[in-house]
Nucleic acid binder design. Structure first.
Lengths: 335, 335
DNA sequence: CTGTTAGCGCGTTCAT
DNA sequence: ATGAACGCGCTAACAG
């Protein structure tokens, strides 16, 4: 049987209140009694029951993390960032994969409520109207990470996807490229899909390059869709000299297809990705990309959540810096 | 204020016991009363307080997952497998990253104890003697995943690394390769380092190929170590025609180095990796590898743990099937 | 079938 | 400074 506070009290010949005080470092305990209690705790290998404590103080020191899929390359670093700061503050995280399914998201929320987490970190693409309703009535602090909240009702940490895409394309233009295709994200994705396409358009416009609808290929951020897009790009009579992909995985898919077809990267075609996942770095040739500070986004999200939990103020819309990482998949246009 | 069971009882004009019964689907509740209670629950948006319940029934329906680093490519799928079956059985997972540091492992164990998880899934390389002592006295079921327990004292799910490595090398030999280098794991890693090297040796021996110490290069499973190893391999006067790497990441590092030096893969040199992570699949050329069923290992680990939690029997040493996935990085030796 | 009540282990008054 | 007692919300045992 595992020891309780009572056992410790008995063994130390004190009341449970006193034991509680020494556990919680309450000042008003005389030195010798404190020592006696500590000894008893040691001897019994007593560990406070966090469940009982939580019930009493109405705080569990755990936070719920809701994520589409931990096995998707984008998310693990975010979670790591979260857990690292959680650990620093003696919080524990409970993890839920939702596959972006509303039903699973709701389930996760319910469990989080029932288990009385102190806060929620919600990582996704968007919050649907439907889910937002649920989110609003959970009654505990919530921070959105890498998730667009179009009405700006929740605290969230994010990068500016439009600007990032704009920078990526501008980089390509500076390299001399004029005919730049885009393997875009999903049309209905307000977080990554739409703004990245907008950024692409703006960069073109700024350089007086006419937007050509035929150069846009929609994908779902995955390898295959990048690969398929490239198949079509290759068929173009007037081939682009560069491609901007809305995800690294699509960029790699596109590169694989191109190389398989005998094209050289970056000599024949430059490719720029988005996200900054490991795959882009280790691919050969390494993929130039927009690196999202995923680890720090996780950290910042958790830090913000902690502030909210403690009743402190926190900036609502936190925009993190991205980084354009030049690698081997992009080069000056050959002339 | 959030509603409690008392509020529901009052609203439905019944005792709390009755409310508890309907929540827990206890059969002996008359239909009309059950309906009345359900309505009250609905109206008050009542959610049972899992903390209070846990305190009472002494089970939290949560399990602790201890992992080296969720942002390392090998682990996310395992965790996903775990969470998927956990969800099916209404369990929740709390996640801890340890970076293989004993101190963090111990911390994680303590929190798991204090938070009264029902079981532990420990994912790592090895359990040190030191940690094993701790593990033994946690007092709740534990299953080791992808972790070698040399004394076989814990339940664990794993692949047979020696056989897998043996198969990989045998495959290379069948392709006609005789001079096969190995980029090995760490010498002191009993889980992946040692057995994979042993398997390599056995395959060689079986085919009467003399083991050549100079063909062994030790790495740490990471990209850079594979890359560096390849640098040295290339310097060899009598170059190998094939390389077996103890991890996909090292295989990719080696391939990158080779290609950068102007070698063609697989024409000039065949490469086989180990693990079956996404990187190996998406690399160009795609990397032949030993695929570990990571998702299923997670599932099986959780399923086993559930059995232990429920007091059922479960096989102690669960060896999963790996798969040799032939891809583009390996080919018959050119003659 | 249903209401009442005693804890689960702890933190916190309230006396002392 | 310290002990006794109450209650956090719930389940289970008991009585009816």
């Amino acid at each position: 049987m595992v020891a309780t506070i009572k056992d410790v009290a008995k063994k130390a010949n004190v009341g449970v209140g006193t034991v509680s005080r020494v556990i919680n470092n309450h000042p008003s305990v005389s030195e010798n009694i404190r020592k006696r209690v500590l000894e008893a705790i040691e001897e019994l290998d007593y560990k406070p029951n966090a469940i009982a404590r939580s019930l009493k103080i109405n705080s569990t020191k755990t936070i719920g993390v809701i994520i589409p899929d931990i096995s998707s390359a984008f998310y693990p670093e975010i979670v790591r960032g979260i857990e690292d700061v959680a650990k620093d503050y003696n919080y524990t995280i409970i993890l839920f994969n939702t596959d972006l399914k509303l039903l699973k998201e709701k389930d996760a929320l319910n469990i989080i409520k029932e288990k009385k987490a102190d806060g929620i970190l919600f990582i996704s693409n968007t919050v649907s109207k439907n889910l937002k309703k649920e989110l609003k009535k959970v009654g505990i602090p919530i921070v959105l990470v890498s998730t667009k909240d179009e009405e700006g009702e929740f605290h969230n940490v994010i990068i500016d996807n439009e600007i990032a895409a704009y920078e990526a394309v501008r980089y390509l233009i500076k390299l001399g490229h004029k005919r730049i295709a885009m393997i875009a994200g999903m049309k209905n994705d307000p977080n990554a899909g739409i703004p990245r396409l907008e950024g692409y358009k703006r960069a073109l416009k700024e350089s007086n390059i006419e937007f050509d609808e035929n150069l846009i290929f929609y994908g779902n951020y995955k390898f295959k869709s990048g690969y398929e897009a490239m198949k079509n790009i290759i068929k173009l009579k007037d081939k682009p000299t560069a491609i901007f992909a809305a995800s690294d995985t699509m960029a790699v898919g596109a590169a694989s297809c191109a190389m398989q077809m005998g094209f050289k990267i970056p000599e024949d075609i430059s490719i720029v990705g988005f996200d900054g996942i490991e795959l882009a770095e280790y691919f050969y040739p390494s993929i130039t990309t927009i690196k999202q500070p995923r680890y720090d986004m996780g950290r910042k999200g958790m830090e913000t959540l902690l502030k909210l939990i403690n009743g402190e103020e926190a900036p609502k819309n936190i925009v993190m810096d991205f980084e354009l990482v030049e690698r081997k998949s992009s080069t000056k246009i050959k002339k």
